[in-house]
């Protein structure tokens, strides 16, 4: 085992308003001295968040070893946090990002704030950035495989949900045939084992990439494995933001986030970790 593994330092934290508590994991900068940069990791939704746990942990450890304190956390009512997932909705989760940043500010007193977000987390981060106070604005948004069309995302989840059920019952020919013949719901009320409450469904149906054009930050970095996304993402730039403040990185690593068929994979591709670290440290645009 590498000597570096023993230099990892994580501390569980609980924070947030009394009626909206959350659980997180703070990764101390060690052994390198703090660089004045702090990173907040913003989860995707449901099964995608479960799948992201590993890479977010690896990424947080690696950033901490470069002197960047990191906070990972679960939105209220998700993951290990208090609350019911039947009450989940995007406005509340965006406010959770702001509460998490306040906690990170207390812990790390950063000069530069970077938010790294995945899938639906990207939309939430963009929405939350608009509400940051001037004294604690976010400097850089890293948006990895961002959801740019809520309606298409819902359909993607619905298809993944059915694929998951088919996989689960692939040994039962009758059940398999019945599941395979069921039409996909236009608007599902649960996907991949997580409920889609009415408020969340409505917000997702209305969600679109324009949210990224309204983000308030100095720099946006998109990371995508989808060839068709680069053009779309390139157009999603806040009006007042300089053209060179946006960058798009096309990666080869394709991860099926919305699957229950993990097949024992650990899902922590080096390509992504090695790309994001210099972005956070400011060496890559």
């Amino acid at each position: 085992m590498s000597r570096q593994m023993f230099q990892i330092s994580r501390e569980p934290v609980r924070f947030g308003p009394a009626d909206r508590q959350m659980v997180g994991m703070y990764h101390f900068p060690k052994p390198v001295a703090p660089q004045g940069i702090a990173a907040l990791l913003c989860n995707p939704f449901g099964q995608e968040a479960i799948r992201a746990q590993r890479i977010f942990t690896v990424l947080a450890d690696r950033l901490a070893r470069h002197g960047v304190p990191v906070l990972r956390f679960d939105y209220h009512g998700t993951g290990d946090s208090p609350g019911e997932c039947t009450l989940g909705e995007m406005t509340g989760w965006a406010s959770d990002i702001l509460a998490a940043q306040r906690k990170l500010d207390d812990l790390a007193q950063p000069v530069t704030r970077v938010w790294i977000s995945l899938r639906l987390g990207a939309l939430l981060a963009a929405a939350a950035s608009v509400a940051t106070p001037a004294s604690a604005h976010v400097d850089s948004l890293v948006l990895w495989e961002p959801v740019v069309d809520g309606k298409a995302y819902l359909q993607e989840l619905a298809r993944a949900d059915r694929d998951g059920r088919l996989g689960a019952y692939s040994m039962d020919s009758r059940k398999y045939a019945r599941l395979a013949s069921e039409p996909l719901p236009a608007v599902p009320d649960e996907v991949l084992g997580f409920p889609l409450p009415a408020a969340l469904r409505d917000q997702l149906l209305a969600a679109e990439g324009q949210a990224f054009s309204q983000a308030r930050c100095a720099r946006i970095t998109y990371i995508t494995s989808r060839s068709g996304d680069a053009d779309v993402l390139g157009r999603l730039r806040p009006v007042e933001m300089a053209e060179d403040a946006i960058s798009i990185h096309r990666v080869n690593t394709v991860i099926d986030w919305a699957t229950t068929d993990a097949g024992g994979s650990t899902i922590a591709p080096n390509e992504i970790v090695n790309l994001i670290i210099p972005i956070v440290l400011g060496g890559v645009r």
Partner: peptide
């Protein structure tokens, strides 16, 4: 359960 962290598959442990 497998590689899933302590919340369990689909948060069932919670």
């Amino acid at each position: 359960a497998g590689i899933i962290h302590r919340i369990g598959p689909h948060r069932i442990n919670v």
